[in-house]
Simulated scan of single mutants.
Amino acid sequence: MNKIAVIILAAGKGSRMKSDLAKVLHKVAGKSMVNHVIEAAMQVASGHIHVVVGHQAEKVQKEIQKKHNVQFAFQKELLGTGDAVRVALPGVDASIDHVLVLCGDVPLIKKKTIADLVSTHLHQMADLTVLAAKVKDPTGYGRIIQNNDGQLLAIREEADATDLERQINIVNSGIFCFEKGFLESGLGRIQNNNSQGEYYLTDLVEVAVQNKSKTLVKITDDAEQVMGVNTIEQLTRINTAFHKASNELS
């Protein structure tokens, strides 16, 4: 049995929310966003969930601990998603073979979507698998660049994309599954020579391609469930989507 650990990224400030509350503590249907994500993750890794905290770390931990027994890692400086995962890795059990990375601000993610991503990753024996979404309007998202065999070649941010690449409507969700050995070695190779001075998890795609490691893309047509929350307007939209989905199920 392949053992899976989950790392949930929940350290960000969420300054665009224009709120004193840490981003992941904003509520959807009366429950903080990060707790929605933890509940979805429990299907694949109930005993191996690690939450990376940073901004308002104590408040975030307190809120999570009311409902869940998870492990925490502290990101002292917010140096990007790659750094956040690097901070959490030492706490991951030595018996773990694969690591799923989720975002604490994607509260509509479904258990089945996570389980399908992990299952595809394991069956195809991939080193890196990204969850991508097919969207009507890809503006603002990182585009998924693939070859004819479906291998992931790059995740191209909009600012760096060519006119042709901007027409691609399959975009990065920020959710990944990694073979642990590849993840550990790859994180040691990524650089922070970008405008933000941050270590990006997406740079591991370039490492994988250089290594000739196996990369996969798992695509969901349900883009709404991988929609992140960066503004109060998006939070309102997510709440509306959540209630609509609940009504359809009842």
Rank of each mutant, 00 (worst) to 15 (best):
Q225P: 01
V226W: 11
Y200W: 13
Q210V: 07
D222S: 10
E198S: 14
E233I: 05
N230C: 04
E233A: 11
I175P: 00
D221L: 12
V207C: 02
K214V: 02
V217T: 15
E179F: 02
I232M: 15
R166V: 01
I219P: 01
V217W: 11
S173C: 00
S185P: 03
K180M: 04
D203N: 13
N193L: 10
E206M: 08
V207F: 10
L187T: 01
G174S: 11
A208H: 04
E179K: 12
G197W: 12
E179N: 14
E233P: 00
K214S: 05
F176N: 05
D222V: 03
I190C: 01
N169S: 09
V226P: 01
Q191Y: 09
L204F: 06
L201E: 06
Y199P: 06
E233G: 03
N211T: 10
R166C: 08
G174W: 04
N172G: 02
Q167A: 10
N194P: 08
V171S: 06
L164Y: 13
I219K: 14
I170M: 03
Q210C: 05
K218G: 02
R166P: 01
Y200R: 14
K214L: 09
E198A: 14
D222H: 13
G186I: 02
N194D: 07
R166L: 11
Y200P: 02
V205G: 02
V226H: 07
L204C: 03
R166Q: 14
V207R: 08
L204Y: 05
S185W: 10
F178N: 05
S213A: 15
K218I: 00
D163M: 11
F182V: 03
K214A: 03
V209D: 06
N172I: 02
V217A: 11
K180D: 06
E206R: 15
V171Q: 10
D222Q: 13
E179Q: 14
G181K: 11
E233S: 08
L216K: 15
A208D: 08
V229D: 00
F176P: 00
V205Q: 10
L164T: 15
E165Q: 15
Q225G: 02
E198G: 06
V207N: 09
N194Y: 09
L216G: 12
V217N: 11
G174V: 03
V209H: 09
I232W: 06
Q196L: 13
V209W: 12
I175H: 12
T220A: 05
Y200A: 02
S185N: 06
Q196I: 00
N211S: 09
D222T: 10
K212G: 05
N172D: 14
